[in-house]
């Protein structure tokens, strides 16, 4: 399956990051990041906490501002122009570690909100779309409940469906399974694998190395705000080059 999926990668560039730098105050969080993502590519970013992997993902849809270098998403250059930012955000879906569903709205309302207000989709059409994606993540029966009534795994699947309702061309995942119980991690990963098989361009910051092996066509290792190593998963896990990567892998795969 992984082989078949890898063939879907096209030459078209989805995300192009060049010489990007970011500071928090005087702290240099991201240093000289260069990364090009092909359409259909699935990239897993790993690294110790504080290495800047989450910040990198959040820079791509301008949740965090970068101070130097350029980020281009689907041919749109990310600048301080609000119109460009809104355009990129409506084409890039994002899932958060803590799901960030809207607790005052029902599941269905969570899903239809952005299509109705941003895409100006008629309400009925938006609801059909929402039910379609809820079926896809296998929880259509929860449509009229509120986020607080769902388990963590279900909430994360709703969050994925909420992003998909905007029919994004790229999906960003910021530690999507870190806040979940082991039993629920699988149901979320299954949903993500399904997405990957459909050829969605994905960037995922995660500690799930099994997922990286199975789904990614490229694994990126970050440390101290820099990309230290990137390679195909087989090579990356079996034959890591940098000593920092070797140490990291031995620590997380060692038990």
């Amino acid at each position: 399956m992984a082989e078949q999926a890898k063939m879907q990668v096209s030459d078209e560039v989805a995300i192009s990051i060049q010489n990007m730098n970011k500071w928090y105050g005087t702290f240099h969080v991201l240093r000289d990041i260069d990364l090009t993502v092909q359409r259909g590519e699935r990239i897993v970013i790993c690294g110790p906490s504080g290495s800047g992997k989450s910040t990198l993902i959040r820079c791509i849809n301008a949740l965090e501002e970068h101070q130097k270098g350029s980020i281009e998403v689907d041919g749109t250059l990310l600048s301080s122009d609000l119109k460009n930012i809104d355009k990129i955000r409506s084409e890039v879906g994002m899932c958060f570690q803590h799901f960030n569903l809207f607790p005052h709205l029902s599941i269905l309302e969570n899903l239809t909100l952005a299509p109705i207000w941003v895409r100006k989709t008629p309400k009925k059409e938006a609801e059909e779309l929402a039910m379609h994606y809820l079926e896809k993540v296998k929880i259509p029966d929860q449509a009229n409940k509120y986020p607080g009534q769902l388990s963590g795994g279900q909430q994360q699947r709703v969050a994925i469906a909420r992003s998909l309702c905007m029919q994004p061309r790229i999906m960003l995942f910021d530690e999507p399974t870190s806040a979940l119980d082991p039993e629920m991690i699988k149901e979320v990963l299954d949903t993500m694998i399904e997405l990957a098989e459909e050829g969605m361009t994905m960037l995922c910051d995660t500690h799930e190395m099994g997922f990286a092996r199975q789904v990614a066509n490229r694994v990126i290792f970050m440390d101290e705000g820099q990309i230290v190593e990137q390679n195909e998963p087989e090579e990356f896990f079996n034959n890591p080059q940098s000593p920092r990567t070797q140490l990291f892998l031995s620590q997380i795969l060692g038990h």
């Binding site: 849809n61 609000l82 955000r89 409506s90 958060f96 803590h98 809207f102 941003v118 992003s163 905007m166």
Partner: peptide, 23 residues
């Protein structure tokens, strides 16, 4: 309100007025 609510609204492409009024 957790910061995540602002971020989720932003990440869906809602503008300031929409995010404020709806979320």
């Amino acid at each position: 309100l957790p910061k995540g609510q602002y971020e989720a609204a932003d990440s869906l492409g809602l503008n300031y007025a929409q995010a404020t009024r709806l979320i």
